[in-house]
Design a protein around this nucleic acid. Structure first.
Lengths: 191, 191
DNA sequence: TAGGTTTCCTAGGAACATTAGGCAAACGAT
DNA sequence: ATCGTTTGCCTAATGTTCCTAGGAAACCTA
């Protein structure tokens, strides 16, 4: 019987694609095996278990997201950098809902350490160099930006902005939010 | 055989408690049946299916959260109101991680409409009355506050703030974040 | 081409989700 | 009280998923 050529990497990418198609919560070992035309048990030579598989998707997504953010950031500074970075973030979440959901998964500290999470922080810090903040304000601002981007994207995806009175386009709110954050970083309150 | 006295309400509360103890993703029909000492099948007279059960937990959590926020808000205005509201939000998430995770579940629009989601928006709007914003800025600010609170709590829980250099207490960042948001609302950028 | 390794298989068990149909407890009306 | 009706929990059964153990065939290497 011809072999399917499974590897942890191929499985991870396929699982990520599956997540984008049917939702991260529906990424199962069975579904993935089906996609490769092999039996469930065959996957266990390449991944430890279902949780391991999902973690790998999370790590992949974090890395991809960091790559896009890095590209967006290249050659920009200050407010431009902020807008580009945030745009890359939101765009990725829109295009890859399953991957983005994976990236939000609770990773154990070891996996988190091996992930691109640190790159995300560094990039956010790079943006802040265009403003005038010193520690610990910079760390606080990094966290605030992360929180706001993630919270916005997450609420938008959950339909939290759908039924408001008066109606208001999410894109419009997004630009205004970025303007507001820019203003805030320029007027960061003294201790 | 003595009856167990199951009702949708009791099941929902028990499922919410279970979520806080073992995590929302481990709330299963089987585990809940075990807790009541009945067979799995017995629950299906009271809930439609597993998804229905989890949605009910989500609706419960949203309502509880709205109640706490409302209490926190009572008699306060402006910056005080902002801090109290946000504190209630974060505190609930810390005390009830399973319920909070449930509240983040993607609800279908019908369930969302029957939930306390609208009360949350109204309360956030109430806070903003202490500042000087008019539409559509007010809607944008509501969304920004929601996003930031949710994003912060969500990242904090996922361990996103654990390993930063330099180290920085999450509580400290939280107070500074609220100060910053207060400043921002007082200096909301013109269109 | 023979031996060893890797890859995928079969077989099987445990947990969970769900449906169909049954019996007994609770309840309401006489 | 008792009779019928409703309701609540049961047994039984099916399908899905996760996972382990051990076997056979494909691939690699000497």
């Amino acid at each position: 019987m011809a072999r399917a050529g499974l590897t942890p990497e191929r499985l991870t990418v396929a699982a990520a694609d599956l997540a984008d198609e049917v939702g991260f919560e529906n990424v199962t070992v069975s579904a993935l095996a089906r996609r490769f035309g092999v039996k469930d048990a065959s996957l266990y030579s390449h991944i430890r278990n279902a949780h391991d598989l999902r973690s790998r998707v999370a790590v992949l997504a974090l890395a991809e997201l960091a790559d896009r953010a890095a590209s967006a950031l290249a050659g920009r500074a200050g407010r431009d950098a902020l807008v580009a970075f945030a745009g890359a973030y939101r765009d990725y979440a829109k295009r890859h809902p399953g991957r983005y959901a994976a990236a939000q998964m609770e990773l154990d500290l070891e996996t988190l350490a091996r992930s691109a999470a640190a790159r995300h922080s560094e990039m956010t810090r790079a943006i802040l160099r265009g403003y005038d903040l010193s520690e610990p304000d910079e760390t606080d601002a990094v966290r605030l930006l992360h929180s706001t981007f993630h919270g916005f994207v997450s609420l938008e995806r959950a339909g939290g902005f759908a039924h408001t009175t008066p109606p208001r386009d999410a894109d419009a709110t997004w630009s205004r939010t970025l303007e507001a954050l820019d203003t805030l970083l320029k007027n960061w309150p003294p201790p």
